[in-house]
Write a protein that binds this DNA or RNA. Structure first.
Length: 282
DNA sequence: ACCCAGGCGACGA
DNA sequence: TCGTCGCATGGG
């Protein structure tokens, strides 16, 4: 990885297959906002960041070199998306999905933050998910300066009662968030152990948490544990499957099904008219 | 007024 | 094991 430092910014050169809008605003992470100059403001866990992309140079603004490795990992810069996309292009609909958002990458997010975020995501829409997570961080996270609040730890949340979460306006999900925080902080569910288990066992362990079913567990595994073979099926992917993959995904996609899923999800959600299921079933 | 949103738990058959 | 329903909240 080539990088230089200018003033307080880190410039990473020769970054390919990345578009910030496609990656940060596709429903996999919920804490990023685009500023007027096109850069993105947000962060992960307790690290705030403003980031922009000029040509193939990724700019980490006002960032200390000690955080470079963290962000390179977060943006998954070591993975060869060219090869992945070439693989996906063997199938027509996947090729279209990739062409629609060729700069979409799967972020390597924190385990707890991803799990908690996707608990909140259930039966919800992305705009409101963002609002709830923003309030969660403001109410229970630490002030890191510059208007950024850390994602609250499970331990911190576990000390509260459901009534304390009422201002989040999370609705019926409030007790799910608390149960997750309590089971993680008590060790009933150990996220480091989840990371080591085979996919099915990892899923079962996560599902010990009230409010974590198959779909939320699969999203947590994909986005928080980088289990790219995990293929979360939500209402959009269900339609895509029925119309485009009635026999299931091609076998050559299976090892990377989660990445394919994100291209398909984004394409179907932003551009439903490209699919046959417009104004049909649900 | 109604329907939907990156579902899940409870309940009955 | 399978369908069905209620669930909080806000936007279209």
């Amino acid at each position: 990885m080539n990088y230089t430092i200018q003033n307080n910014d880190i410039l990473i050169q020769n970054v390919t297959d990345l578009d910030l809008a496609q990656t940060l605003d596709c429903g996999q992470a919920f804490r990023w906002e685009q500023l007027e100059d096109g850069s993105y403001q947000g962060g992960a866990l307790n690290k705030p960041l403003r980031v922009s992309l000029k040509e193939s140079t990724l700019i980490l603004h006002d960032t200390n070199e000690s955080d470079l490795a963290f962000w390179a990992e977060y943006f998954d810069l070591d993975t060869d998306y060219g090869s992945l996309k070439a693989c996906f292009a063997q199938h027509e609909i996947l090729q279209k999905a990739v062409k629609f958002a060729p700069g979409l990458r799967i972020l390597k997010q924190d385990k707890w933050e991803a799990l908690c975020s996707f608990i909140i995501s259930q039966n919800n829409n992305i705009k409101r998910i963002k609002g709830i997570i923003d309030r969660l961080c403001r109410c229970f996270g630490e002030d890191m300066g510059g208007g950024y609040y850390s994602f609250p730890t499970a331990e911190r949340l576990a000390h509260h009662a459901v009534e304390d979460l009422s201002e989040l306006k999370a609705g019926f999900r409030a007790r799910y968030i608390l149960d997750a925080a309590q089971k993680i902080s008590s060790g009933t569910v150990n996220l480091e152990e989840v990371a080591q288990l085979p996919l099915e066992d990892a899923r079962k362990l996560l599902m010990k948490i009230t409010g974590v079913g198959v779909k939320v567990a699969d999203c947590a595994l994909l986005f928080g544990f980088y289990r790219i073979e995990s293929y979360p099926v939500d209402v959009w992917i269900k339609r895509v499957n029925q119309h485009m993959f009635p026999q299931g995904l091609p076998t050559y996609v299976l090892p990377y099904a989660g990445i394919a899923q994100q291209y398909l999800f984004h394409y179907a959600r932003v551009c439903p008219e490209a699919f046959a299921f417009v104004n049909q079933d649900k």
